[in-house]
Amino acid sequence: MLEDLIRNAYSAAAYGATGMVLMLLSFAVIDGLTPGNLRHLLWADRNRNAGILVGSNAFAVAIIVTAAIVASEGRLFEGLTYTVVYTIIGVVIMTVTFFIIDLFTPGKLGELVVHPESHPAVWMHGVVHVGIAMIVAASIL
């Protein structure tokens, strides 16, 4: 029992740390896609649009990480590899989608994200991030 607890705690810590790093990577990608300083927009300006996009992206990454854990069926190295590879695929697809949506819609999506007034396009894009994550997660399972 104690051996299982130690092994499970080690796995939980490894997945948790990996998921955290991948969420930070995802945050950095969003920060690069949007004008201005995303941390400042969130914490100092309390920008709702930025919060929606960052929150949906973090949720999307969590969905992919969770699917990778389930798909690994207890094989830690395989699960961590799945986690990293599939999350990077998801973030790349989300980034490409950001550019495609920006290309085919009026205005600039990055500017909408930093605008102080709430905009429905940011909500829509947040849902797209979660949808992409669900597709990637289903491909793992």
Rank of each mutant, 00 (worst) to 15 (best):
G90A: 06
G110S: 06
V127K: 08
L109W: 05
T87H: 08
V114N: 10
P120H: 05
L112I: 07
V113H: 02
G110C: 05
Y82Q: 12
I88L: 13
E111W: 04
T95M: 08
V85T: 05
M94I: 02
V96G: 06
V128Q: 07
G131L: 09
G110Q: 03
E111Q: 11
A121L: 09
V92A: 13
V113A: 08
I100Q: 00
I101M: 09
I93N: 07
V91L: 11
V91F: 08
V91Q: 06
V122L: 02
V128P: 04
G126N: 00
S118W: 13
E117Q: 15
G90K: 00
V122R: 00
I101C: 10
V84M: 03
F98H: 05
I93A: 13
E117T: 14
V92D: 06
G126K: 00
H119S: 09
E117Y: 12
E117R: 15
F98P: 00
G107M: 03
G131D: 04
T87A: 10
T105Q: 12
W123M: 11
A121K: 08
G90D: 02
S118Q: 13
F104W: 13
V122N: 01
K108C: 11
V128L: 14
I88W: 01
L112W: 10
T87M: 07
I100R: 00
Y82A: 11
L109E: 04
S118G: 10
G90T: 00
V91R: 04
S118D: 13
W123Y: 15
K108N: 15
E117K: 14
V96R: 04
V130W: 07
F98N: 01
V85E: 04
H119W: 08
H129Q: 15
W123L: 13
I101V: 15
L112P: 00
T105K: 08
T87E: 09
F99I: 09
D102V: 07
V114E: 15
L112K: 11
H119N: 15
V113N: 01
F98L: 02
V92F: 10
P116C: 02
T97K: 06
A121R: 13
T105Y: 08
V128M: 12
G107I: 02
F104G: 11
P116F: 02
T95N: 05
T87V: 08
H125K: 06
